[in-house]
């Protein structure tokens, strides 16, 4: 697992209070990990803070699973 993926996983475990084993790449924030719309916004903000980037709203809306977050961050974090 990439360093980015590990950090993403740790943030999700911390913010959503889920078990690490639940945080698979396929897992959906809302359907599988119990996040509501505000939790999802908070996750995106945490990713922005952790990786020091800004994720535009239209891109953020496309991030609904752990894998989508990891892919986006791997492609955009310098």
């Amino acid at each position: 697992m990439s360093e980015i993926a590990q950090k993403v996983k740790a943030i999700i475990v911390d913010k959503l209070g889920v078990e690490e084993s639940e945080v698979t790449l396929e897992a959906s924030f809302t359907n599988d990990l119990g996040a509501d719309s505000l939790d999802t916004v908070e996750l995106i903000m945490e990713f922005e803070k952790e990786f020091n980037i800004s994720i535009p709203d239209d891109q953020a809306e496309q991030i609904g699973t752990v894998g989508q977050a990891v892919s986006y961050l791997e492609a955009n974090v310098k």
């Binding site: 505000l38 916004v41 908070e42 903000m45 922005e48 803070k49």
Partner: peptide, 9 residues
């Protein structure tokens, strides 16, 4: 602005 979405609630 980087207000937490839970700020207001």
């Amino acid at each position: 602005p980087r207000f937490n979405p839970f700020f207001i609630p």
